[in-house]
Deep mutational scan, measured.
Amino acid sequence: ITFYEDRAFQGRSYETTTDCPNLQPYFSRCNSIRVESGCWMLYERPNYQGQQYLLRRGEYPDYQQWMGLSDSIRSC
């Protein structure tokens, strides 16, 4: 899974293949995501807390595409 700070896969990015309890050191906001394979559970707060979103393989050019309430993703 790759997270992008800006919409349409622009700006600083961070890629991971494992669970991350705290994504804050890698980016300040998340406006687009690419899921290369599988399913990922994302959380608005660190340590798997807050609103959660299940994303399947695909491209999400805007946080509203995954029904996000904000551009805050802090763990996965």
Rank of each mutant, 00 (worst) to 15 (best):
9 F>E: 02
25 P>E: 14
61 P>T: 05
53 Y>I: 15
34 R>V: 09
8 A>D: 03
9 F>R: 01
45 R>N: 04
35 V>E: 00
62 D>Y: 09
37 S>E: 05
76 C>E: 01
59 E>L: 07
5 E>I: 15
62 D>T: 08
53 Y>H: 15
70 S>E: 09
71 D>A: 11
32 S>F: 00
11 G>A: 07
33 I>E: 01
40 W>E: 00
48 Y>K: 01
67 M>C: 04
38 G>C: 11
52 Q>V: 07
8 A>M: 12
32 S>W: 00
59 E>G: 12
4 Y>H: 02
49 Q>S: 13
40 W>S: 02
7 R>L: 09
36 E>T: 15
2 T>A: 03
18 T>P: 01
18 T>Q: 03
59 E>R: 04
15 E>L: 08
8 A>H: 12
68 G>K: 12
54 L>G: 07
22 N>F: 15
4 Y>E: 01
53 Y>W: 14
69 L>D: 06
40 W>L: 03
14 Y>Q: 03
28 S>W: 04
64 Q>D: 12
30 C>N: 06
2 T>M: 05
67 M>P: 08
43 Y>F: 04
17 T>L: 06
71 D>E: 12
66 W>D: 05
32 S>E: 00
52 Q>E: 12
6 D>C: 14
6 D>Y: 12
50 G>P: 01
30 C>G: 02
22 N>Q: 08
58 G>W: 02
12 R>W: 12
54 L>A: 10
27 F>T: 14
52 Q>C: 05
41 M>Q: 13
71 D>R: 10
68 G>F: 02
56 R>Y: 15
31 N>G: 07
28 S>K: 15
31 N>P: 05
25 P>K: 11
25 P>N: 13
75 S>L: 13
19 D>C: 08
67 M>A: 09
44 E>G: 12
6 D>M: 15
8 A>V: 07
44 E>C: 14
73 I>P: 14
39 C>Y: 10
75 S>G: 07
21 P>I: 12
5 E>Y: 05
14 Y>P: 00
20 C>E: 09
55 L>N: 01
50 G>K: 02
66 W>I: 10
69 L>S: 04
43 Y>Q: 01
47 N>P: 00
29 R>G: 09
9 F>Q: 03
13 S>F: 04
67 M>D: 06
10 Q>C: 13
5 E>S: 08
11 G>S: 05
66 W>V: 12
57 R>A: 13
29 R>Q: 05
16 T>W: 11
22 N>W: 04
26 Y>E: 05
5 E>L: 03
54 L>S: 11
64 Q>T: 11
61 P>E: 06
42 L>P: 00
59 E>W: 03
34 R>Y: 06
53 Y>K: 09
50 G>A: 03
70 S>A: 12
18 T>L: 09
22 N>I: 05
27 F>Y: 02
66 W>K: 10
70 S>Q: 07
52 Q>A: 10
63 Y>P: 14
66 W>F: 10
67 M>N: 07
73 I>C: 13
34 R>D: 02
13 S>H: 09
50 G>V: 01
48 Y>H: 13
20 C>Q: 09
19 D>L: 13
12 R>Y: 10
49 Q>W: 03
6 D>G: 10
16 T>Y: 15
48 Y>V: 00
7 R>E: 11
27 F>D: 00
30 C>P: 07
24 Q>S: 11
47 N>H: 05
